[in-house]
């Protein structure tokens, strides 16, 4: 039982991080219908911002940790908006494939610029949040895991509010549904797209810091694997669907953790992906995704 609870906790914190990344993939897909492959590298930049800002602040305090987190989110939001403005926007209106290839190029650009600037050697991520470990009837709860889960939950509730409770959030859903109609009510699509990139990238930045807290070794290629997993989570949940991305990420995090704790741990990724393929065979649009008839 303790073992089960332990794995549940681990899976929850891993899934929460995947969710933060997956949300950005799915939101951008929702409004622009393309996968922003550079998103996983924005996540990496978030971890590095957390590393540098966290290095300046006293370690092991909540306010210091939250300040580093906020800096990473703000920095990544700006980075995401700049990438869209300079790289993707000029290609808008052209074939989607062009943007997709460009996104892969942007991803490689960030990864290798990261190696140039930060060096390829992994760095130890400082313990920016209080790193206590609580033992409860044999259940080991690290403060980092609690921080990850709480911060991720707060951010997702905040996102829910931003998307459903604000004018710009409603405009984002309107653009995702029908960009032409959105323009006809006076919505400036460019502003909504910038907002979407900013919001998604800020979440990825937070994900980067939280991931680095739990796996405290960061390097410029650290985004590749979690980014891929989060992408898979977004597809699993139904790409373009916000609650779907969170659900897909939690499932993936859980499966991965439970398999990792079993004797088939070597095959954890294989099993995780086999489950993905299985689900997509039966629900090709993802768990919460729906096929919409495209109206012309």
């Amino acid at each position: 039982m303790t073992e089960f609870l332990q794995q549940l906790l681990n899976g929850l914190s891993l899934g929460a991080i995947y969710a933060l990344i997956a949300l950005g993939y799915t939101m951008v897909y929702g409004v622009l219908r393309f996968i922003n492959f550079a998103h996983s590298d924005v996540f990496m930049v978030g971890a590095f911002i957390g590393y540098f800002v966290g290095g300046l602040l006293p370690h092991g305090t909540f306010w210091g940790g939250l300040a580093a987190l906020a800096a990473a989110m703000a920095g990544c939001a700006v980075l995401g908006i700049v990438i869209e403005r300079l790289v993707y926007r000029p290609l808008r209106g052209g074939p989607t494939l062009n943007v997709l290839i460009t996104a892969i190029g942007m991803s490689l650009f960030l990864e290798y610029s990261g190696q140039l600037v930060f060096g390829a050697t992994p760095r130890a991520f400082p313990a920016i949040f209080p790193a206590k470990v609580i033992s409860l009837h044999g259940l080991i709860i690290s403060m980092n895991q609690v921080t990850v889960i709480v911060v991720a939950a707060v951010l997702m509730v905040g996102l829910q509010f931003a998307v459903h409770g604000t004018k710009i959030g409603t405009a984002m859903r309107a653009v995702a549904l029908n960009p032409k109609a959105a323009q006809l009510v006076g919505i400036n699509i460019d502003v909504v797209i910038s907002f979407t990139f900013g919001l998604g990238s800020a979440l990825a930045g937070a994900g980067g810091v939280l991931y680095a807290l739990n796996y405290p070794s960061i390097d410029p290629l650290m985004g590749v694997v979690p980014g891929l997993k989060a992408f898979v989570a977004a597809v699993l949940g139904g790409v373009g669907n916000i609650p779907g991305a969170a659900l897909g990420a939690l499932i993936l995090g859980m499966v991965e953790t439970f398999v990792d704790g079993s004797r088939w741990s070597t095959y954890k990724d294989a099993i995780a992906f086999a489950i993905l393929i299985g689900i997509l065979l039966f629900r090709p649009a993802g768990l919460l995704g729906r096929y919409r008839a495209e109206k012309v």
């Binding site: 409603t170 309107a174 549904l177 109609a181 959105a182 109206k295």
Partner: peptide, 8 residues
Amino acid sequence: GRMIFSNL
């Protein structure tokens, strides 16, 4: 074709 925001 009206183009209302059908999910809203």
